[in-house]
Amino acid sequence: MKMKIKLLSFLFFFVGFLYVALPPLSSRLNIENQLSEDVIVEVSTANGQLELELENYLIGVLASEMPASFELEALKAQAVASRSYVYSRELKVDDTTSSQVYQNDDVLKEKWQDSYDMNLAKIKEAVVSTKGQVLVYDQQIIHAYFFSSSNGKTNNSEDYWTTPYPYLVSVDSHYDDIKQDNRRTKAFTFDELSQIFKEAFISMEIISHYENDYVKEVRVNDKIYSGRAVREMCELSSSSFQIERNEVGIIFTTWGSGHGVGMSQYGAQGMALEGYDYIEILKHYYQGVEIVNK
Rank of each mutant, 00 (worst) to 15 (best):
Glu199Phe: 03
Ser82Asp: 15
Arg245Asn: 07
Val292Met: 05
Met204Trp: 13
Leu35Ile: 13
Thr154Ala: 00
Thr253Leu: 10
Asp176Met: 02
His284Asn: 02
Tyr137Thr: 00
Val292His: 03
Tyr285Phe: 12
Ser36Gln: 14
Arg183Ala: 08
Ala74Lys: 09
Ser150Glu: 07
Leu273Tyr: 03
Val248Asn: 09
His209Arg: 14
Leu50Thr: 08
Leu7His: 06
Gln133Glu: 15
Gly60Leu: 11
Gly227Arg: 06
Phe241Asp: 09
Tyr137Arg: 00
Asp191Val: 08
Met1Asp: 11
Ala126Thr: 07
Lys153Ile: 00
Ser36Cys: 08
Ala81Thr: 14
Ile279Ser: 01
Lys6Thr: 11
Phe241Cys: 06
Glu192Asn: 09
Leu282Trp: 01
Ser129Ile: 05
Glu73Leu: 09
Glu244Thr: 10
Leu54Cys: 07
Gln195Trp: 02
Arg245Thr: 13
Asp213Tyr: 14
Gln113Ala: 14
Leu62Trp: 05
Ser240Phe: 10
Phe17Pro: 08
Asn56Met: 08
Gly48Ile: 07
Tyr286Gly: 00
Gly227Tyr: 10
Ser115Val: 02
Gly249Tyr: 05
Glu158Phe: 03
Gly48Lys: 12
Thr130Ile: 01
Cys234Ser: 08
Tyr145Ile: 00
Glu158Gly: 01
Met263Gly: 00
Phe201Pro: 01
Ala268Phe: 01
Lys124Trp: 07
Ala74Cys: 11
Val86Met: 11
Ile123Ser: 09
Ala200Gly: 10
Ile202Asn: 13
Arg231Thr: 06
Thr254Leu: 07
Lys131Ile: 07
Gly256Gln: 06
Tyr175Asp: 13
Glu211Trp: 01
Ile40Thr: 14
Glu205Arg: 14
Thr185Asp: 08
Asn212Gln: 12
Ala79Ser: 15
Tyr160Gly: 03
Val292Gly: 04
Glu280Asp: 13
Tyr165Asp: 00
Thr96His: 09
Gln242Trp: 02
Lys4Thr: 12
Gly267Phe: 02
Val169Trp: 02
Leu35Trp: 11
Ile251Lys: 13
Arg183Met: 12
Arg219Ser: 10
Glu199Pro: 02
Leu50Trp: 11
Asn293Ala: 03
Asp106Thr: 14
Gly270Leu: 03
Gln195Glu: 15
Gly275Arg: 04
Thr163Trp: 00
Val107Ile: 15
Ser36Lys: 15
Ser237Thr: 06
Arg245Pro: 01
Val107Ala: 11
Gly256Lys: 08
Asp176Pro: 01
Ala79Lys: 12
Trp255Arg: 09
Gly249Gln: 07
Asp191His: 05
Val128Asp: 05
Asn33Gln: 13
Ser208Thr: 10
Glu53Ala: 06
Lys223Phe: 04
Ala77Tyr: 02
Asp172Ala: 02
Thr189Leu: 11
Val230Leu: 08
Ala229Ile: 02
Glu90Leu: 12
Arg89Val: 00
Ile40Met: 14
Pro166Ser: 03
Phe188Gly: 05
Glu211Asn: 14
Asp38Arg: 12
Trp112Leu: 04
Lys6Ala: 12
Arg245Glu: 15
Phe14Ser: 12
Thr162Glu: 13
Ala200Met: 10
Pro164Gln: 04
Gln133Ala: 02
Ile141Trp: 03
Arg228His: 09
Tyr167Cys: 00
Asp114Phe: 04
Gln140Val: 00
Ser129Tyr: 05
Lys124Val: 00
Ser226Lys: 13
Pro164Lys: 08
Pro24Ala: 06
Leu22Trp: 09
Ala21Gly: 03
Gly262Val: 00
Thr162His: 05
Arg219Asn: 12
His259Leu: 11
Val218Met: 06
Phe201Glu: 12
